[in-house]
């Protein structure tokens, strides 16, 4: 069996056997469910607003695509929720190995450092996929009755974007987790880093020139939003994939250098 798969299965076992990860998943489902209902059916929800708009504007305006608008809103919200949830999933990836001394076992086994990192990342990403799967079910059920009929491509693209976003945050979080032995510190630092990458386009909006342009491109929210809007944009895809690659690369560098000290 390939070594990546061995690491992957061990990590997956860890996530699915740990009460801590179910606590995170439960809180995520609760919040997501609350927003799902209130965005769709609440007094300020998309259906109520569409009705209001129809009543005010009369028959002259084209009908609003409620399904599309709802999905955009809900996916943006999931992105924001993920920002809080993902650091909690990634913070223990390496701090735990260091505390238990099992990093020495991995480092003295015939398995490459990057393979360990990649296996870990895939496992935590699988757990996140498990977390968003029920939401996908809700969406499909709610949107199946939409008129005009709902475009499944948007749905898939939007969730692909969510997974890529998660991959980017988890990968960077994994790197930070390899830097310290304190799980809490890793979580806080990851949250700080993700928040800055999330908001970097807001912070640099006034900046002119290539520097500002470059920083704008680093933004996680900007890349994610193109997916949410149902656009497959190569540069957004590239940004998110680069973060994933960077995280894995930096993790293996940092774990390698742990031995040299």
């Amino acid at each position: 069996m390939p070594k990546i798969l061995v690491i992957y299965r061990r990590e997956l076992h860890f996530y699915f056997a740990s009460p801590w990860s179910y606590t995170i998943a439960g809180a995520f489902w609760l919040l997501a469910g609350f927003f799902f209902v209130s965005m769709l059916l609440g007094p300020q929800g998309v259906i109520a607003q569409a009705l209001l708009r129809d009543r005010l504007a009369g028959d002259g305006v084209p009908p609003l695509d409620v399904a599309y608008q709802f999905l955009q809103l809900f996916l943006s919200l999931l992105g924001t929720l993920a920002l809080f949830v993902l650091p909690m999933l990634s913070m223990g990836l390496y701090t735990g190995e260091r505390q238990r001394g099992t990093l020495e076992l991995l480092a003295t086994s015939p398995v490459a450092t990057w393979a360990v990192a990649l296996g870990k990342l895939l496992a935590v990403l699988t757990f996140f996929t498990f977390m968003i799967t029920p939401l996908l079910g809700w969406e499909v059920i709610a949107l199946s009755t939409a008129s005009p009929p709902f475009n499944l491509g948007w749905l898939i693209l939007g969730h692909l974007g969510l997974l890529l976003l998660a991959g980017a945050v988890l990968s960077l979080g994994m790197f930070i987790s390899s830097l310290t032995e304190s799980t809490i510190l890793a979580g806080v630092l990851t949250f700080g880093l993700t928040l800055s990458l999330w908001l970097v386009d807001l912070l640099t909006q006034g900046w002119e020139g290539t520097g500002g342009d470059f920083l704008q491109h680093l933004s996680l929210v900007k890349s994610y939003n193109t997916f949410v809007q149902g656009i497959l944009d190569v540069s957004s895809l590239g940004v998110l994939l680069s973060y994933i690659f960077l995280g894995v690369f930096l993790t293996s560098q940092s774990v390698e250098s742990l031995r040299r000290s």
């Binding site: 070594k3 690491i7 061990r10 740990s18 238990r100 001394g101 015939p110």
Partner: peptide, 22 residues
């Protein structure tokens, strides 16, 4: 300090080690 994963059973852990050792 023996490198152990506390959340695994003894047999599962040894199987894991056997696998990563090839």
């Amino acid at each position: 300090t023996p490198p152990l994963y506390p959340d695994m059973t003894v047999a599962d852990f040894l199987l894991f080690v056997a696998q990563i050792k090839g």
